[in-house]
Each structure stands twice: as structure tokens, then as C-alpha cells.
Design a protein around this nucleic acid. Structure first.
Lengths: 192, 192
DNA sequence: CGATTCTTTGAAAACAGTCAATCTGTGTGG
DNA sequence: CCACACAGATTGACTGTTTTCAAAGAATCG
């Protein structure tokens, strides 16, 4: 399971053998079954989490009990509640597995330690965070300026891999429309 | 004008006299009149920008010509198109002044230099970016799960200072509703 | 096979957008 | 100082979209 993370760290962050070893020393390998939680609302997020295999989602539950999906994450992505992780506050979100997953956890003190001892890693992670900021900003832009159909098409073209792995009603939740509306949007779309 | 930035850097980032001096050396003070652009669509964003005085907005223009406001920024905030700044790509957004403003610009090479020579500053900026990520994630959450009225109330309670400084039709644009809808939401709200 | 999950469809109601008109306050030029 | 233009806010009537509720048709899994 660690191999996936190792080749990611070598390829994307440019780590060498020694650095890989110090990362490996603090990694916790974990398997998560479909429908299991990685993090539950109210808990504090203590870990960074790299996905070696599988697919997870992060979502919040509204006052009416409806689930609102903030993001999906698949192989070679990271997932955690950064707000809870950074501030040590209870999370308002849930993270659970949509498939059987293999993930790698690094707890916060260990991770901070890695970042300070491996500057290359810190630069890489900072770059990642910058790009996730861009991504989420684009999502705000589509939320306030595109129609449901445009948001759907945008999602398909941007995340074809995720699109064919998760149920449609979850994509509807991610896009901020009801599953019925998404269904209708799709059927109109097929006719064209 | 620099004084505002100086006390910000001392208070929030904990910089000392020497560090303040090296920051000052690369700062560009600039006044921007109401309605003037700080950045126009198509340009590359070369600067970090700290707001000493005034209020600006960042927005994108849709295919139909409608303006969609991504964020507002007031005193002691930073504003720039990070995507363009980081990647050196042309910006898809505009930034312009809603009031006469005084801003401090630091160009990218100088800023990178500051970050490497003043680790305290890098830690501080990283913390800022982390918090803006949290903020924008919360905005996505409200966009996909709250009604127009709830988003409006949330905006008022979260940004009372901004609320009374910018015209309502811009808040409507920020919230992703038409100005007429916001107007009606408000009048219903008054009756309660 | 039966149970669950997922997707689609229909009809009614709630909601938001558009277009056009009006009202307000602000500020500028004559 | 007044008149006028202009930006901003509101309202009404209409249209179009989205949600909701209920039902039923696929697909998947044990």
C-alpha cells in the first residue's frame, strides 16, 4: 500500500531515498470499508490522509438532514477537514468511503515535523494547497454564475474519472441541485 | 500609508524592526480611485496587494456579460488573483476599487524573497492562506445548501462591515441571485 | 429471489429570473 | 442654487426553472 504513496512522493515532490524513509517511519496504513467513516462530525481531525486506493467524499449535513457534498477524492489525492486539522476544533463535516479504500494517515505532529525537516515537501504541499484554493474558487464561480446544466457538464469534463465512479444523486448533491433536477437535466441533454 | 501595513505586520505576523525594514524596501505604495482597475481580465497578476485603506472587489464576467463577484476586500486584507499570480497565466478576473483606496504592492520576486528570508512571514502567510481556504469552503457549503435568504443573513452577520459599504446589487452578485430577488428577500425579512 | 440502492418520471407548488416602470438620493455642470 | 443625469433600490406582472412529493422502473448485492 505504501508503494503508491512512495512513487507519488518521488514523482511529484521529488523526494529521495532518505526522505522517503523518514516519511515511511510515521505513516499509518489503514483500510476503510465502503460506507465506513474516516471522520465524523464532532470529531477533531488529527490526520493528513493520502488515498492510495479507492474513493471518498466529504460532506456536511444541513438542518433539514440533507447531505451536501463538499468534495470527492480518489487515488493520489489527499482528504481531511483542514479547518478542524489546523485549528483543533470539532469538525462540522463527515468523511466516508464510497468504495473500499486504502489510505495512509500521518498524524499532525509527525507531519509538521516532516514539513520542517524536508523543505522540498513543504514547498510541494504549499503548492498543492494553492491549487486546491484555485479549484475551490472556480467552484464558487460556477456556483454563482452557471446553470445546473452548465455545472453538470463542467463537472463531467473536469472529473470524468469521478463521474463514472460515484452515484448520480451524489453528483447532484455536489452541484447543489436535487437528484430529480439532475436527472431531468441529463435527459434533456441526451436529446441534443 | 505604510504605517497601516507596518502595524499589521508587527501585530499579526510579529515582525521586528529589521524585518519591517526589509519589507518596506520592496513595497510600492499606490492610490487607486473609485472605479479604477487594479487588475483587468487578460493581464497577469504580478503583485501581492495589501489594502491599507478602502474597499475593492474581484469579479468575473460571464458569457452573457453579467458580473459575478468572487470576493470583496477591505482594510488589512490582501487581494490578488492567486491563480494568475502563482501560475503566471492571464487572469480571468477583474479587480477594481469600490472606494478611493490606498494599497501596498509587492512584486512576486520580491515577495518570494521575503518569504524565504523571513520564516515568520512565511508561516504567517501560510496561515492566512489556510484560513482563506476554510472561508471559501464555507462559502461553497452555503452556496449548495442554503436558500437565498439564508445566504443573505449569513453574509450580514459574517461581514457587517462590508455589508454597509457596498451597494446591494453587488451583494446580490456575490450571493449568486439577481438584485430584484435580493430586494424581495430583504422586504420579506423586514416584515418579521 | 428479495432487499436495498439508485434513477427516472409526473404533477403541483414554491422559487427565482426577466423586463419594465418607478422612486430615491447623490453629485455634477450650467 | 437649481436642474438634470446617474447610480442604486424597489415593485409588479409574467415567465421559466427548481423543488417537493409520490410513484414506479432499473440495477446491484447478498
Amino acid at each position: 500500500m505504501f508503494e503508491a504513496f512512495e512513487s507519488y512522493l518521488r514523482g511529484k515532490a521529488g523526494l529521495n531515498d532518505d526522505e522517503i524513509e523518514s516519511v515511511r517511519a510515521v505513516c499509518i496504513e489503514k483500510k476503510i470499508r465502503k460506507r465506513q467513516y474516516l471522520l465524523q462530525e464532532g470529531e477533531v481531525c488529527h490526520y493528513e490522509c493520502f488515498i492510495a486506493k479507492g474513493c471518498l467524499r466529504m460532506y456536511g449535513v444541513g438542518d433539514d438532514g440533507a447531505e451536501h457534498i463538499l468534495r470527492f477524492a480518489v487515488e493520489n489525492w489527499w482528504i481531511s477537514d483542514r479547518e478542524s486539522y489546523n485549528n483543533g476544533t470539532p469538525s462540522r463535516f463527515n468523511i466516508d468511503a464510497l468504495e473500499n479504500c486504502e489510505v495512509i494517515l500521518i498524524n499532525k505532529p509527525d507531519f509538521i515535523n516532516l514539513l520542517t525537516t524536508i523543505p522540498k515537501l513543504r514547498d510541494f504541499i504549499d503548492g498543492l494547497l494553492a491549487r486546491s484554493y484555485d479549484a475551490i474558487q472556480n467552484r464558487v464561480m460556477s456556483a454563482i454564475s452557471y446553470s445546473a446544466e452548465e455545472r453538470y457538464q463542467h463537472f463531467i469534463s473536469r472529473f470524468p474519472d469521478i463521474f463514472h465512479r460515484v452515484p448520480l444523486h451524489m453528483i447532484a448533491s455536489y452541484l447543489g441541485v436535487s437528484r430529480e433536477t439532475l436527472s431531468r437535466v441529463r435527459s434533456q441533454f441526451v436529446q441534443k
